[in-house]
């Protein structure tokens, strides 16, 4: 039971921990405050508990597609919020931040929402899992130990990623972080396509490829890549299309965001010059 709990809790924690690591790395480079982290974590945990307590009825919504529909809504929102957050910080560096203060604020709020959603998604399953053992009272000690270890490894991975990103040469931190966020957004949409396939809202088609012999999803590297970039060994067309759409959405937001700031910066520069001339 010990090993099972370690693996299960690690699987659930890893994705959220890595996402938080990336968002914090961007935040650290911009030197914004990180109050949003705590708001996101705490509200996420509370809502996750409410979901876990009512999972029985939620699961029966939409003719037993309730869980999948809720997950799809949350995953799509994460994808949209990520695109908006990336738009805000693209083309922005900490030297300009004084003039672009509002961007930092909005970025923080969006990060809070993204983390809240990520915690709800993963937290409800952890709470259901642990709730089962607490109510039955069996294997309690092993499960508690395993969960602490699993959570510890997951959280450490996020911290490791954070320091890895911050430790990169300064010009690299943001492009790499934004790329990871784009892949994460793709993962979210791809997972939601799979969720809807599971309840027959999207037709199941034959997998586009099968790389399970090359890299199994339940192997250590497979699990890590699943959490980091959404690796699937047997994805369907709907998953691949959704993945690409999610990645493109964030990349477009990144390009648009930096172009907008460049143009706006130039405009302000011209205005300043003009006012200087008239004076």
């Amino acid at each position: 039971m010990l090993i099972n709990s370690v693996i299960l809790i690690l699987q659930e924690t890893l994705e959220a921990a890595l996402l938080i690591g990336v968002l914090l790395a961007i935040n650290a480079q911009l030197r914004c405050h990180h109050r949003w982290l705590w708001y996101g974590l705490s509200t996420g945990a509370i809502i996750a508990a409410l979901f876990a307590l009512n999972m029985g009825s939620v699961a029966e919504w939409f003719d037993y597609a309730g869980q999948e529909v809720m997950n799809t809504v949350m995953q799509s929102l994460i994808c949209l919020f990520l695109a908006a957050a990336v738009w805000l910080v693209s083309g922005l560096n900490r030297f300009q931040l004084g003039a672009w203060q509002q961007y930092g604020h909005y970025f923080g709020r969006l990060c809070g929402l993204i983390i809240m959603l990520a915690v709800i998604r993963e937290g409800q399953e952890i709470m259901l899992y642990l709730g089962g053992f607490f109510s039955s009272g069996k294997h309690l000690q092993q499960v508690t130990m395993g969960s602490i270890i699993g959570f510890g490894i997951g959280a450490s991975s996020g911290i490791l990623l954070f320091y890895g990103l911050v430790g990169l040469p300064a010009t690299w931190t943001k492009p790499v972080s934004l790329t990871l966020l784009a892949l994460f957004a793709g993962t979210m949409l791809s997972q939601s396509a799979l969720q809807l396939t599971q309840v027959d809202w999207i037709e199941q088609t034959a997998p586009l490829w099968d790389s399970s012999a090359l890299l199994a999803e339940d192997s250590l590297l497979g699990e890590l890549l699943y959490a980091l970039v959404g690796y699937e060994s047997k994805p369907t067309a709907a998953q691949v299309v959704s993945y690409i759409a999610g990645v493109c959405l964030v990349l477009i937001a990144a390009f648009r965001g930096s172009r907008y700031k460049r143009q706006h910066h130039l405009k302000q520069h011209h205005l300043k010059q003009q006012s200087g001339e008239t004076a």
């Binding site: 029985g56 699961a59 037993y64 599971q198 309840v199 027959d200 199941q204 699937e232």
Partner: peptide, 15 residues
């Protein structure tokens, strides 16, 4: 490629 939580004393549908 399926994964679904089924709460205690409840039913679930998976295609």
């Amino acid at each position: 490629n399926r994964e679904k939580v089924i709460p205690g004393n409840r039913r679930a549908v998976i295609f």
